[in-house]
Amino acid sequence: MAVKRLGAQTIKFLNPPAIISTGSIVGPKEGQGPLADYFDAIIQDDLYGQDSWEMAESKLIREAVTKAVDKAELKIADIEFMFGGDLLNQLMSSSFAARDLQVPFLGLYGACSTMTESLSMAAMMIDGGFADRVVAATSSHFSSAERQFRFPLELGNQRALTASWTVTGSGAAILSHSKGGPFVTHATIGKIIDYGIIDANNMGAAMAPAAADTICTHFDDTGLQPSDYDLIITGDLGVYGKEIAVDLLNKKGYDAAANFSDCGIEIFDQKKQDTHAGGSGCGCSAVVFCGYLYQEMQLKNIRRLLLVSTGALFSPTSSQQGESIPSIAHAVTIEI
């Protein structure tokens, strides 16, 4: 009998795990953005002293985990399991980081939704009594994502207005039992939703229905209302995707417009930084949560948060074959 299951897709943690510390590290562009002061480290060269961008991204995860471990006054060896993922083929950067860290590793792929996916899994592990300290970490890197999913950096093309900018950065959160929060209280695991959007330059529109579906299911399952949250924040819908998600929620009878935001919108200054729709990537919701939101929660400026990382589960192959973009969103409730 699954006592911790609530409604159709939600898990209610009976012994809510605490997020005892976080680490965040970002690239130079994110370091010029409005959230710069919240990050633990800002690298100046996006190659980060490595031979390739892929290895630079791997180092970002390593550093984010190390920072989180240091802040919790732990050692890497104290971490019992690691959930992690990124955007690259075969999870190159997370598995290479896990190789160097020598922490038992479970790799996850949920595209940009991986942060809440790994948070949910880590929380289940702690709540289930399988471990005492688990880290959830994800990363993305503009240059490594660009070459895998889009075009070479030096190609002189124009980016679509609905296109987003992959965040360079990594965030890591350590979950454990503790008296002090913030606590992970609920997790709503999303279904894959596909409304037939084909344009890979408009991922916000592809992912918005998935975000709306998960959020709506979360409210139905838990009986909570949008007003119960100080902030409902999606992963990387961007400017247009966010508007669509709010519209879709409205149609389903939930008015969330007042306290609804998007990590991709928060991380960059849309006017000055010319990112078009906003930030995206596994690292986007990771650094915004592990840097900005976590600190705001510790300051009690945000007491109840619904973090909804959103992922577009397409690949260059599926895109070239003309398939539409399946999308997913996982929601995690974090309270203090």
């Binding site: 130079p28 562009k29 996006d46 190659l47 503009f142 240059s143 660009e146 950096l153 030096e154």
Partner: peptide, 10 residues
Amino acid sequence: AILFTPKSKL
């Protein structure tokens, strides 16, 4: 390709 390397984009 031998002489130059792509530059990071800001």
